[in-house]
Design a protein around this nucleic acid. Structure first.
Lengths: 334, 334
DNA sequence: TTGTACGCGTTATCAA
DNA sequence: TTGATAACGCGTACAA
């Protein structure tokens, strides 16, 4: 028999369907012998509960979504795994929905359509709430405000859309970037370049934080957007810091400016993650965000919204998490 | 009014619920004027279909899962995004379920429990089928055979569990590693080290493929498992190739062997992905797997199983996809 | 063109 | 301790 249901079990055991339901769910008001018998035949017939039906009847799913809008190669999957485990510890399951903003656009002619569909589904009963990592400011604001209007419990994690009244969990990027700048500066840096061109709040906060720190130190810092196309580093400077969010971006910049950066003393500052040797820098300083804690707080705030709805005011809107650690890599090979 | 249903719309519009259902789904047998009116009030009231109910009634979800068992930092999220877009183009949606094999084990005392729960849910009606990237051979075989027994449509992607009668989509790793070895060897390599210690079919195929290629070239190749703890590279060799699946593994190995590798001519060979400069190698050759095509085939085979069930024999069990490209990185900075 | 009625698999409330 | 029954929201033959 294919996919036995509670009804099937009830017939086989010659009891009512509601007894079967109770027995399998460990309700104490079933005779031990009945429970035994029912459970055995459930096992024997390979019964599996239908979660669709259960969730429909119960009105909730105990499932959370985390929606990533990706650019570039995106973060590692392990960042989502943290959230998954945290949710699981709270007896929720978590699913990741992915949208790649860069690719597949022209290919199928429906890049935004895909994103739209994901967000739409988030308000159609499959999930109790969503953690959202948005990316494009412009398109996000209208699509996401629909979700807000639908009262879908949601949290922005890492990045966010400031226009929307949605709780945010993120690193204190202003302060983190400032600290990163100071740590880079400690290597006798005489000049800095700040590569945070993305039009989103996180990049802006990092740019501002690093900029202010360098200014206080009296170190001239060039913002990427101030760099003209044929900008050249001043020849006389010999030690330079370059800060960015991602190794890839930094690397591409270095390759473009190869001729000028060669034989300069370089210090790189990045967030999260660095693979391999510092090269071409002498040192890389990495501001490692606390994914575990970001996940914990996101899930926590989300579940709070789900379980006590209409509790608008008490949760402050912006939660910040400190950097987990600053890691320094030095050249080991020459 | 919270969450209007078809019923609510029916009352407001003073028509039957089935008419509303038809109107919203574009059934041509509704009078244009009715459809107009119904759609407007649906819009006005913020109606959203309940996918739980729809899927329960229809007996399918048009949702696919891709289940990752992660070790290390795991692949990039963008690998899953490819599958998501492919599924979307076929009018399915795709969700990623993540389990981190390394972390969170001791923490909550339920590392395996988490994985088990994910796999269990895969047979409980929430998905029509699953793409699975397994990792640990031992535990996977028993957990996954449950899924097989439940007739859950599934495909292994990238890695797989050979004992189970499940279609596999993967790179031809034997041949890819052989080609990678030959391309490394072309840099006048005199000795090779193969770092593929993981106990899974992919690592084994890569080890075998690279090993055979080096053997044919008459280049001595050391397998990691043959390396004693205080192994030292022979002093006289001057150019050495080191092959591995991941940059991280390679880098950790290089740091451990720092004293011996310094000032040697190194050629690295890896799969998929390299961030930054080749350092400490002179060159890195990257065998880039075709994620897009792997995703396309996985989704395709999965959907075929879903849509024409009980078609056991005609699909060959193992599908291989060629490497997308071999990329070579050379030192640009010294 | 629209309405009636039943089924999807489960949970919950009441009554027995 | 168990059974009957009504939701949950939607799809769909079948009838009108």
């Amino acid at each position: 028999m294919a996919k036995p249901t509670l009804n099937d079990l009830a017939k086989v055991c010659e009891v009512d369907i509601s007894t079967v339901s109770r027995a399998l769910r460990g309700d104490p008001r079933v005779k031990a012998s009945s429970r035994q018998r029912i459970r055995e035949t459930a096992e024997r017939l390979g019964y599996r509960p239908n979660l669709l039906a259960r969730n429909l009847a119960g009105g909730k799913t105990r499932a959370l979504w985390i929606i990533y809008a990706l650019t570039g190669r995106g973060p590692r999957l392990s960042s989502g795994a943290a959230a998954s485990h945290v949710a699981n510890a709270r007896d929720y399951s978590l699913f990741v929905a992915l949208h790649d903003c860069d690719n597949y656009g022209a290919l199928e002619g429906h890049s935004i359509a895909h994103y739209e569909q994901i967000l739409e589904q988030a308000s159609q009963g499959l999930t109790d709430g969503a953690i959202i990592l948005p990316r494009r400011h412009e398109s996000d604001v209208s699509l996401l405000s629909d979700l807000v209007r639908q009262n879908v419990p949601m949290v922005f994690a890492d990045n966010y859309v400031p226009e929307l009244p949605v709780p945010v969990v993120s690193t204190d990027n202003h302060q983190a970037a400032a600290e990163l700048a100071r740590r880079c500066a400690a290597f006798d840096v005489e000049e800095a370049i700040l590569l945070f061109p993305e039009p989103n709040p996180v990049a802006r906060a990092r740019l501002a934080g690093a900029g202010e720190a360098f200014q206080q130190l009296g170190i001239p810092a060039l913002n990427r957007s101030e760099l003209s196309d044929n900008w050249k580093p001043s020849k006389k400077r010999t030690r330079m810091a370059i800060l960015s969010s991602h190794q890839d971006y930094l690397h591409r910049f270095a390759l473009r400016q190869e001729a000028f950066l060669k034989n300069k003393g370089l210090i790189f500052g990045v967030f999260d993650d660095w693979s391999g040797e510092p090269s071409p820098a002498e040192n890389v300083i990495i501001a490692v965000q606390d994914n575990q804690e970001l996940a914990r707080q996101s899930v926590d705030i989300l579940i709070r919204q789900i379980e006590k709805p209409k509790n608008l005011s008490p949760t402050p809107l912006h939660h910040t998490v400190p950097i987990a650690e600053f890691r320094t890599l030095s050249q080991r090979f020459t």
